[in-house]
Nucleic acid binder design. Sequence first.
RNA 1: GGCGCUAUGGUGCAACGGUUAGCACGCGGCCCUUUCAAGGCCGAAAUACGGGUUCGAUUCCCGUUAGCGCUACCA
Length: 492
Amino acid sequence: MTSSPNRPRVRFAPSPTGYLHVGGARTALFNWLFARHEGGTLLLRIEDTDVERNKPELVDGILAGLRWLGIEWDEGPFFQSQRLDLYRQAAESVLASGHAFACYCKGSSYAGGDHAEEAEGDGDDEGPKSAKAAVCPCRDFSDADRAAREKEGIPRAVRFRTPRTGTTSFEDAVFGVREVQNADIEDFVLLRSNGLPTYQLSVVVDDIDMRITHIIRGADHLSNTPKQVLIYRALTAAPPIFAHVPLILGADRTRLSKRHGATSVGSYADEGFLPEAFRNFLALLGWSPGDDSEYLRTHELIERFSLSGVSRTNAIFDRAKLEWFNTQYLQKPPVEELLPYVEAELKRAAIWDGSPASHDAAWFSDAVDLIRPRTRLLTDFSTWARAFFTDDFDYEKEAREKFWKDERLQGMLEKLASVLEALPEWNHDACDAALRSLATAEGVKAGLLINATRVAIVGRAVAPPLFETMVVLGKDRVVSRIRRALPALAHP
RNA sequence: GGCGCUAUGGUGCAACGGUUAGCACGCGGCCCUUUCAAGGCCGAAAUACGGGUUCGAUUCCCGUUAGCGCUACCA
């Protein structure tokens, strides 16, 4: 838990105004990969200073999303709502040093006024259509001006006294050195008139207090970073290294939102995506290892992650590619890694009662291994592959129409059941030989029987190869299922 | 409106002054075949536009355009 002095300390700082969305998840992932790669520390901080939009109950969902993703934090979660004194003290300190001033403008928090318009409406020496950022008129108030307003009981906010001249610069690990004109930065609020800090203040105070060394966050914060650098200076603290990562957009190139369908991490968990597949996909959205590698298991992601590989262009979330990654993780890793996920899925679908005794471990592994080459989502195990785990399944309409057309099938499958039942050995080749010789005797192609039988024993047209399926299902089940299908065969 | 960032096939990334502009997803075709996948092979598909700089620009500079971000007493 305690990190050595020069180990990086990073943080993921979501705001509980919504669920954990893919953009936030990607930011969290980059922070986590960076921390693990560098042997550093990841902290979790909940930025809940907006009392109106903040929904405490959402915090659990965010934590659950991170856990599902396999992102573990080393410290926290810390809640900004429990550290308000710290921010007030900082605001007073900045006020005392002259880097901030008391503002008595009408704030939207209690009146709906617009500060910027008010400042412009004065039409002062700045020129008619000034391109410069708004300068608050309160910044030049005399002691008497302030005293008068205090006496009137006008709520006081604290604004930063942004320099009118000069520039502010900082270094960004992905965007390089940034420099902005101070004249383009408005006199932004540090402490609201209700005593709560704004994001700009609390984020800086906390990052200083928590000794954060690298701030890895969405590029939507790039434009506000100069303000934060100004606060660091006012607080006589050295700014950390910034690393802004490009945003993730929807297919229409606008910011990802509910309109784009599933955007919460939880919905992907529910749909049957594997966390590692999701991580692999997300990691490659805005980051590249530098070569053509695509399938990168998590330990490889950690080994290869570097801020220098982060791109500067916004990326579009491509669900098709996510699905491809999921198939990779469903099919490539050792089957043992998949078993817990399949068990959870079967349990969720009420196909498996969860008792260890209800299915033999070796058999279960074989079944999963046979099914997985055809899966795209974890839920496939409880949908089309259902018949592997329960006798309670039905015959898919399309399958019946496609493979049960021939009216001779009923008689042939009746014979097949008997032949199979009489088999002394139950294995792939024996089943294969039995079925093929029956086909020959009946004068039909083996495919006719194979396809019809597949539908009879698993209810689906799309399923694993027949003889492997027979072996996994076992003789008793295969024979009884064929016989059970006989009546239905007459009425495809 | 102002300020800023970005710009390689439909999508995600490579190429960080010199390549027939590479890989992956997706798409089309072929092979394999016991349905369907997987897999293998092949194919279509890109440097936004205009100026520079340079022997040489995807790459460096400027402009245009477009997209995105910020411009809140949201984060």
